[in-house]
Design a protein around this nucleic acid. Structure first.
Length: 559
RNA sequence: UGGGGAGUUGCCAAGUUGGUUAAGGCAUCGGACUCUGACUCCGACAUUCGAGGGUUCAAAUCCUUCCUCCCCAGCCA
């Protein structure tokens, strides 16, 4: 049913299931579901729910359905149902033949509503939206009963049928459950269960003009599918009494139990689909799959692996207290995964020319570089070395502070897989004073891997050979927001990070990177993990930085 | 304010049938190793569990008072 992984983590929901299995509450079955509304792209918060629901089913040898909660045609689109399926699959989960839609049950749901009317548990109400709000009472004041509350069963049946047949305008009438207008739980004050809505549904077209509300459709959909544990987020806690009331009112043989957990919050981003959509539509980002977005498609494009996201969801745990997870944990998960998977390559983001004066003109050596020191099976490759190479601008300092282990006048450094070089001369732009070239000499006895190469120097730099290097564009991403909780305050767009994307177009990468595939992950030595963006073309490779390597030098500098 | 939830180290989070020194991860800080200042490894990191009372030989776990935060008054989900 999903990735070949063992699920050993436990949480309070698993404790409940263990107890249910002990007592035989659901016949020792475990059947969950992931029920997204197709009104936006999935984000990392949904990933938590997906991992929880599918993971729980896997752990207990049960099943997990994918169910689109499509009861509001005015907001839902096929684009979203497609992206949701792609994302769940990409994460590594398989709903097999159990892809459902709440709209599959519209006919059945309608019959349940009729049944509710017949048993005196529902009525057609003519109150306007505003009137209904007034009648609802307040947190401290009980509501008052609708004047339409005591219509006869016959009249309700007839009216509801007329609603279905399109004989009333949108909003003219609703079907309400008849419970208790004095309940301290607002959700039990005769909640609306059907409304008239003329909108084209992405699956049923114009067949219906009445649509069930979430509170009505969800418990019944769960019961119809034989769901045992209906896991949802905390805000539905106050709806649970209605969930149970409904199933009892229609006397359904299945009694799934709703269990609520705290949704994921991640520092420096937000999970509101509405606000994420606003970022897309407002042009603050380049689409739902912008690598800065917390969407699954954004994380995918950023270079995150499915495994890293699953691992993250395992590590954050499942509980009932609202919390904000540190972004560093997500970074840790992707670094840990990519460390063993990503091929090492050398790429220079901000090139500084280095001429090795005593290296023969025109000579090219093919040096051997390991593809991944963590995994010998990934083999080796050849990289060219010659008289002119480029190193990183930040790896040279004319006047270095102490503990700077890189290149500076008169100092030695090793070029990874090549030789130890010594800085002899600095060439500057006459007008700007900017260092534009460094002249060095190399020690021929220090070639990597050879007998005399044992000499140690403190620093090792990455580099590319000038003649063979491939020019590339690299996109450096940072947090989309500058504040840990961007939703604090009136306008979250005020918290946008102006430097969330820095595009470097003059990068030089080693020639092996000439032919890469979109989605390939690499570690640019000493810099971080990068992935090939979908914008890449044969002549113009584009890389996204997934995450930087941990950088203790940066910490020393700060201190 | 009525109802429903939650408060354990910087961030997550175990533990809640009361029983020795309050798991684990992330972050942080040392140190070792290193042809990635990466990785890895070793070590440090809550006399205290929102606060105050109480019960008990013994409480994060029981009782009690109080405080803080979140959710609910859509014909959204």
């Amino acid at each position: 049913m999903a990735v070949n992984e063992t699920y050993t983590t436990t949480n309070f929901i698993h404790n409940i299931i263990d107890e249910d299995n002990r007592t035989g509450k659901h016949g020792k079955r475990v059947h969950t579901r992931f029920p997204p509304e197709p009104n936006g792209y999935l984000h990392i918060g949904h990933a938590k729910s997906i991992c929880l629901n599918f993971g729980t089913a896997i752990k207990y040898g049960g099943l997990c359905n994918l169910r689109f909660d499509d009861t509001n045609p005015s907001k839902e689109e096929v684009e979203y149902v497609d992206s949701i399926q792609q994302d769940v699959k990409w994460l590594g989960f398989d709903w097999e033949n159990r892809k459902f839609y709440a709209s599959d049950y519209f006919e059945e749901l309608y019959q349940y509503a009729v049944e509710l009317i017949k048993s005196g548990n529902a009525f057609v109400c003519d109150l306007t939206a505003q009137e209904m709000k007034d009648y609802r009472g307040s947190l401290t004041q009980p509501g008052t009963e609708s004047p339409y509350r005591n219509r006869s069963v016959e009249e309700n049946l007839k009216l509801f049928e007329q609603m279905k047949n399109g004989e009333f305008a949108d909003g003219d009438k609703v079907l309400r459950a008849k419970i208790d207008m004095a309940s301290p739980n607002l959700n039990m004050r005769d909640p609306v269960i059907y409304r008239i809505l003329r909108a084209t549904h992405h699956r049923t077209g114009n067949k219906w003009c009445v649509y069930p509300m979430y509170d009505f459709a969800h418990p019944l959909s769960d019961a119809i599918e034989g769901i045992t544990h209906s896991v949802c987020t905390l805000e539905f806690e106050a709806h649970r009494p209605f969930y149970d009331w409904l199933l009892a009112a229609v006397n359904h043989p299945n009694r799934p139990q709703q269990i609520e957990f705290a949704r994921l919050n991640l520092a420096y981003t937000m999970m509101s689909k509405r606000k994420l959509r606003a970022l897309v539509e407002g042009g603050y980002v380049n689409g739902w799959d912008d690598p800065r977005m917390p969407t699954i498609s954004g994380l995918r494009r950023r270079g995150f692996t499915p495994h890293s996201i699953r691992d993250f969801c395992d590590r954050i745990g499942v509980a009932k207290s609202n919390s904000v997870v540190d972004y560093a944990l997500l970074e840790h998960c992707i670094r840990e995964d990519l460390n063993v998977k990503a091929q090492r390559v050398m790429a220079v983001l901000r090139p500084l020319k280095v001429v090795i004066e005593n290296y023969p003109e025109g000579k090219i050596e093919e040096l051997t570089a390991e593809n991944n020191p963590e995994n010998e099976q990934m083999g080796v490759r050849k990289i060219p070395f010659s008289k002119v190479v480029y190193i990183e601008q930040e790896d040279f300092m004319e006047d270095p502070p102490k503990k700077f282990f890189r290149l500076s006048p008169g100092k030695e450094v090793r070029l990874k897989y090549a030789y130890i070089i010594k800085c002899e001369q600095v060439i500057k732009d006459e007008t700007t004073g900017e260092v534009i070239e460094v002249r060095c000499t190399y020690d021929p006895d220090t070639k990597s891997g050879e007998a005399l190469s044992a000499r140690k120097v403190k620093g090792t730099l990455h580099w590319v050979s000038a003649a063979e290097a491939v020019k590339a564009e690299v996109r450096i991403y940072d947090q989309l927001f500058v504040s840990e909780n961007p939703e604090d305050g009136e306008d979250y767009t005020a918290n946008l990070n102006p430097a969330s994307l820095v595009t470097l177009s003059e990068c030089l990468v080693e020639p092996s990177l000439k032919n890469t595939m979109s989605g390939d992950n690499f570690q640019f030595l000493r810099q971080g993990y990068f992935t090939v963006d979908q914008d890449s073309t044969a002549g113009h490779p584009v890389f996204n930085r997934t995450v930087g390597l941990r950088d203790s030098w940066a910490k020393i500098q700060k201190a």
